[in-house]
Design a protein around this nucleic acid. Structure first.
Lengths: 138, 138
DNA sequence: CTTGACCCTCCCGTTACTGGAAGGCCTATA
DNA sequence: TATAGGCCTTCCAGTAACGGGAGGGTCAAG
């Protein structure tokens, strides 16, 4: 199977599939003309990768999950560890976004949004107060 | 004021401040020895930037907000438009993460997490079903 | 034989920085 | 005065996960 068909079947762009090969996530065969030839097992792996990525797992997480998937004797605890860590990151990100949302929606609501220059959004950003002094990395 | 003092006062790393100068967000003066010299207005702007960034505004958003901030005659509607668009992006991101969280926490709960190989997390990722076929860009 | 749809590789651009190397400047102390 | 350290400078490279596009080979149909 050529890359175009695989893209069709997995929903992944051909560019992405080539990239996954480049970083060693899949190893399709090659035709004599240089075209990639994908086996069913490659397509299956790419589907796995697409689903894992859509759940927000990083490429390195995916690499680990794929290795565990192909290891029939793995312990489910190893899989759960990766997933639980990812879940914790998601929760942290949600909390961060919720905090941003709260502040921002408050400011947006307070802003008249008309032709006048007075704007609580800018006023707040301009103020040099402790409550606004946190610049933690995201 | 030198860059180290400004970093101290704004909470921004010196590297970041240099970067902001490079992309034209601030324009500190220069001493004869080549050191950057920051005025109070520069420090103020950097504080503004730090706060806007911590609310998740992009650099380009910040550039726009800063321009509006320095334009005494701007309309608050212009500011509100930027903030509301950002709020919408935040909401979309939260919704996406909530969906991931729901699926993932379900799987994590279903996984025994012991020494046995059976793992619903991997089983689900391996399945090629319609309900798991969406790989929309984030 | 040409057209058009594939496929290939290679390189740059994205976001917002961060790390590090190589070296100049400034102050204090031995 | 020499030197140590702590600043400061520039420039280069790398990050995550691709996307865009150039330049060019391949294949099946008409």
């Amino acid at each position: 199977m050529n890359i175009g068909d695989v893209a069709q079947r997995t929903g992944l762009p051909a560019k992405t599939i080539r990239y996954y090969e480049e970083i060693g996530l899949v190893r399709p065969l090659r035709e004599t003309n240089g075209y990639r030839r994908f086996r069913e097992s490659d397509v299956h792996k790419l589907g796995f990768l697409g689903r894992a990525r859509s759940l927000g797992f990083s490429i390195e997480d995916c690499r680990g999950l794929l290795a565990l998937y192909e290891d029939a004797g793995r312990a489910s605890a190893d899989v759960k560890r990766i997933a639980a860590a990812h879940l914790a990151r998601i929760d942290a990100k949600i909390a961060e976004l919720d905090a941003m949302r709260a502040t921002l929606s408050h400011l947006v609501d307070a802003c008249a949004g008309d032709h006048r220059p007075d704007c609580p959004i800018l006023s707040d950003l301009a103020v040099d107060e402790d409550k606004a002094e946190s610049h933690e990395p995201t």
